[in-house]
Design a protein around this nucleic acid. Structure first.
Lengths: 184, 184
DNA sequence: CTCAACTTTGAGTGTTCACTCTATATTGGA
DNA sequence: TCCAATATAGAGTGAACACTCAAAGTTGAG
């Protein structure tokens, strides 16, 4: 047997602790001590399982960025409304991950860093997705125009998401659908 | 005489040093040591003039926030295009300060903290400004509708600004004006 | 049951941070 | 020129940070 059950459970607790701390207070709140306290673990145990704090943080942020994808199978049949609804749903159902997603997008350390690249790559995939849906809905649209509108639509969604992160009482869903109506 | 000339000059050097450090490397780069080194001053002199590092940082960031305003006197005559152009200009000319402004808002140090509140307050002022400009441009618009459109427009601008911050080759200005055309 | 592999502990390291304190130097009005 | 107010130097403080390590405890396959 490669690993003991105790270690596997401890690893999960550490990841959970990191995720909730990041969602509550961003990178600043996710200190090693805070993570260990919340996970009920001492520093030594942490470093028996991970090489660095950064490793866990990146793991959790990546999870958040990936989780926002509305249709991982990419069937290519969803409408704009489906995509917008999926985006909104993610924020309503996974507020912790959603907050991390927004924070991660903003607090990218240095140019060309991992988190930033990953975010952009994912963003471009989403733009394609939205562009395809727009082109399907209106076949007079050129690919270029659809791409531009998709970029605009996602910009609006990200901006509204940021607004929601600042103030959870913001009616994200209402504005998101209104944006879709006017921009697509 | 209340103050000596030497102190006034030192204060200016410290503010300049803080501004340039923030612009180059964000909050992370603006340590007390870095600020003092660049200003050619020791810590003791710094604290003879300021109560805390935060005081200077906030002073500089606020200065940048004020720079976004195309019409500080609030004459109420600017058009949507004026406001959009001013917003774009701010992000293009002060990218790092804009980034700090945003990071400070999302990274909530303590619940209900100052930075977050300040950001929201500023956001609401901007929404009013945009709403007024929209109402002036189209007098069939109700205040409520104008307010909603303004919120949407600013959401889009914020989102596009982040997109640009992630990838400087993004044509922020082009998308911002297209958003204005479709949302206002 | 045994024992090697794995896990946990918790005190400890070294660094960096914002900030303080006291002695010394400079300023500028009278 | 005098001297109180102001400015500066620079060593020092304590807290927070990520991270280490040797020793003790636990697990589970054989």
């Amino acid at each position: 047997m490669a690993r003991y059950q105790a270690g596997i459970r401890t690893e999960a607790r550490i990841i959970d602790a990191t995720r909730s701390l990041l969602a509550e207070g961003g990178l600043e709140a996710a200190t090693l001590k805070a993570i260990c306290d919340r996970a009920g673990v001492k520093a030594g145990s942490f470093y028996n399982l991970f090489d660095s704090k950064e490793e866990v943080v990146i793991m959790v942020v990546r999870e958040a960025i990936d989780a926002i994808d509305p249709d991982p199978t990419g069937a290519g049949t969803d409408t704009i409304d489906d995509l917008v609804a999926a985006f909104v749903r993610f924020f309503e159902e996974e507020p912790e991950l959603a907050r991390i997603y927004v924070i991660a997008a903003v607090t990218t350390e240095s140019p060309g860093s991992g988190a930033r690249k990953r975010f952009l790559k994912h963003h471009k995939r989403r733009v394609e997705r939205f562009g395809d849906a727009m082109a399907r809905a209106d076949d007079t649209l050129t690919d270029e125009t659809a791409g531009m509108r998709a970029e605009l639509m996602l910009g609006a969604l990200d901006g509204l998401a940021f607004r929601w992160a600042l103030d959870p009482s913001f009616e994200f869903s209402k504005y998101a659908h209104e944006a879709a109506r006017r921009l697509c």
